[in-house]
Design a protein around this nucleic acid. Structure first.
Lengths: 242, 242
DNA sequence: CATAGAAATGACCACCCGGTCATTTCTCCG
DNA sequence: CGGAGAAATGACCGGGTGGTCATTTCTATG
């Protein structure tokens, strides 16, 4: 009556919501995927600010107005991608956590390293966005992502260490939180190195898959030895190739 | 004759050179400092691409043309800052390396952790630029900086480990390169965490200086214990406050 | 076929960017 | 004071940005 509301606003919803306008949901799912994939690539390759809407629509060969009709704004597009990505990440993480929970600490740690490296390689875009977010102060949703993902990861490692302590394969006097911090830092660095020879530090993490696998195992092994109740001299300095 | 060369180009020099036009060197040293400090701040706070020449000259209250007369371009300004920063970093690093070379491995490692944390806090701008460069692919001079600084750091840690092995305080079966990788990763994460509660992981690295010092020591201690020939149970889980 | 509503379009906007350069102002010396 | 050279200036440029919206095209239904 009073306010005829000429603009059919797609309902405000929550501020943290990432729901696109209904238009996008009605699209051919194949087109939806193409749009999301190409956008994700742009953000992962260039970071948030350097990412260009013009490039995205150019590559997709659609009109710029369409993208804004779908997501409202650049940040809206990013929020949508971000939400989907986090949900997509959680499932494999849980699968890793719940699998082989009876195995010994060193085996589980190696498995986690391997699985994480595989994930980072299979989803270079998600990994690229996460890496950038760690150091870029003004990424939208930075606080949300970091607290969600990192809390999950660190809790996971802490529980892993505590379980190892109960099993007797990890020194009891080790502070689980500190150990988790070291593990997470090492793994993160290793994953970062695997995509960039400059950060490789001569470890061979960015070379061929076979070598990388062996080096990842060696890294996990070194951590395990440090945490184990007694040294395991069977695995010596040169014994790096599995 | 043929080419009167109307533009008094300031001599090309080397491509990697960072020498500003002579104009800048003739300036009042106090003004030089102000210009460099404000520029460094802009790059550290915003990264290379988001850094704005307009904001810099606005804050300095000088004309935009002046800055371009001094350094030729945005990248020229950055190169100059970068060169100075690297030179400035090297001295304290060497001092740490050469000091107390007779001390035992754990003491030296703790000392390095403490000194690095102090440096990162005393030079937040340099540290901010370095952190960003690690993940930002298209920083100018990224390759140069990373290979210089990281090679230096990793060699330093490797030598530290090897020395510890000779002294007998570090397990002989430990691969020094891998140990150096773990140490560097942990230290880097700790320094990153100290400026950002989001990355702190509940360790207390970003809280007050006293707590931070204790936590840094605990981190170094945990690494040392992992690397040492036998466990040192005297320093137990709760024994964090020095 | 007619037509209503959804979807797609791209010219256009204001803004900011790095960079230029003719001009003015300053400084110092004869 | 006069003048030369160094230094400072800021209007201006082309180009890229995120964002808008009147218009056209498509599609489904009666």
């Amino acid at each position: 009556m009073d306010t005829p509301s000429p603009t059919p606003r797609p309902a405000p919803r929550s501020d943290l919501d990432s729901a696109p306008g209904s238009t996008f949901n009605n699209l051919d799912p194949q087109k939806q995927r193409r749009v999301l994939d190409e956008s994700l690539r742009e953000f992962a390759e260039n970071g948030y600010h350097q990412a260009s809407i013009n490039r995205i629509v150019g590559r997709l060969d659609i009109a710029k107005g369409s993208l804004f009709q779908y997501f409202g704004s650049k940040e809206g597009l990013f929020r949508h991608l971000f939400r989907r990505a986090v949900d997509e990440i959680k499932a494999p993480l849980r699968a890793i956590r719940d699998a082989d929970s009876a195995e010994a600490f060193p085996q589980r740690l190696k498995r986690v390293f391997t699985a994480s490296a595989a994930f980072a390689q299979a989803h270079p875009f998600l990994w690229g966005i996460y890496r950038r977010m760690l150091t870029q102060e003004d990424f939208p949703l930075r606080a949300t992502l970091l607290s969600e993902v990192r809390a999950e990861a660190l809790t996971f490692f802490r529980e892993l260490v505590e379980l190892g302590q109960k099993q007797g394969s990890v020194r009891a006097d080790l502070n689980p939180a500190i150990a988790a911090f070291v593990i997470e830092a090492t793994l993160d660095r290793a994953l970062t190195a695997q995509g960039s020879p400059l950060l490789d530090a001569g470890l061979g993490l960015s070379s061929d898959p076979n070598t990388r696998q062996a080096r990842l195992d060696a890294l996990a092994e070194a951590l395990c030895q440090g945490f184990s109740v007694r040294s395991v001299p069977s695995i010596a300095k040169g014994d790096v190739n599995a």
